[in-house]
Simulated scan of single mutants.
Amino acid sequence: MSSFSSMLMSSSGSSVTSNPATGREKWEWGAREDWRFADMRRQYGKHWWWISFIAVYFSQQIFLMGICLPLYVVHSVNKPLNIWDLVAAGVCLCGIVIAYFADTQLHNFVTRNSKLKELGKPMVLNLDRGLWQYSRHPNYFGEQLWWWGLVIFAWNLGHGWTFVGSLINSMCLAYVTVLVEQRMLKQEYRAEAYRLYQKTTSVWVPWFRSSAIAVKDKDT
């Protein structure tokens, strides 16, 4: 069991390091600051450093320990593989694949818009192709599948309580989703298009898009 989960962890790590989205800054120190840090600094002024330490750095260590609890169980309990382990592995693998392609498509979209901006051409307002046609945040959905797949492993070993870490992580990611969408709506050039995108496309779980015409008729 432990070697099986280690293979999945290696696959997940490889998908992250080989993804072009992770190298978009070319690993240059300070090449780009995360917009959430910039907002935090503006909001809290001189107190931002210790607030960010607690809210971001320290809390993330707690979250990491929480979401990794299923791995502790997997490496501590010796039990033969069964059908539920295969289900868990399938969920984890689906999460890896979805997150990889979603991040790759997002990277290509951002890169293309950057080039269009440099050339003085109109940018594409929204990414609504590929996986992003069925979900507004397919990368988040893939990530959640991965962590909840690990929970299935632990549940099958009699330690279902380890879901707590993944649940808190999902709640935090839901909050991040709200922040991201609020930021998108603050960008005037794409606000109207993004509102329509919100009305026609699922937030996390991929699903078929609603008709834009039907949405407009409903609003009127």
Rank of each mutant, 00 (worst) to 15 (best):
V16L: 08
S18I: 12
P20Q: 03
A21W: 05
T22A: 08
G23L: 01
R24F: 01
R24G: 00
E25S: 08
G30R: 09
A31Q: 03
E33L: 13
E33W: 07
D34F: 11
D34T: 04
R36N: 05
R36E: 01
R36H: 05
R36P: 01
A38D: 05
M40A: 14
M40G: 10
R41A: 09
Y44M: 08
Y44E: 01
Y44G: 03
W48E: 10
W49A: 13
W49G: 12
W50Q: 11
I54Q: 08
Q60Y: 07
Q60A: 02
I62M: 12
M65I: 14
I67S: 04
L69G: 05
L69T: 10
L69I: 14
V73Y: 13
V74S: 09
S76I: 09
P80W: 06
P80Q: 06
L81Q: 07
L81S: 11
N82E: 02
N82Y: 05
I83M: 04
W84C: 02
D85E: 03
D85L: 02
D85N: 08
L86F: 07
C92E: 03
L93C: 12
C94I: 07
C94H: 04
A99P: 00
Y100N: 12
F101A: 03
D103A: 08
T104A: 04
T104W: 11
H107S: 06
F109P: 11
V110Y: 02
R112Y: 04
R112D: 04
N113F: 04
S114D: 09
K115P: 08
K115S: 15
K117T: 14
K117V: 15
E118M: 12
L119Y: 03
L119E: 11
G120M: 02
K121R: 11
M123Y: 06
M123G: 13
R129K: 13
G130P: 15
Q133C: 10
Y134S: 06
S135M: 10
R136N: 01
R136K: 14
R136E: 02
R136I: 09
P138A: 11
N139K: 06
Y140M: 00
F141E: 00
G142L: 02
Q144K: 07
L145P: 00
W147L: 00
W147S: 00
W148V: 07
G149L: 10
V151Y: 06
F153P: 01
A154E: 03
W155T: 14
N156G: 02
N156I: 06
N156R: 12
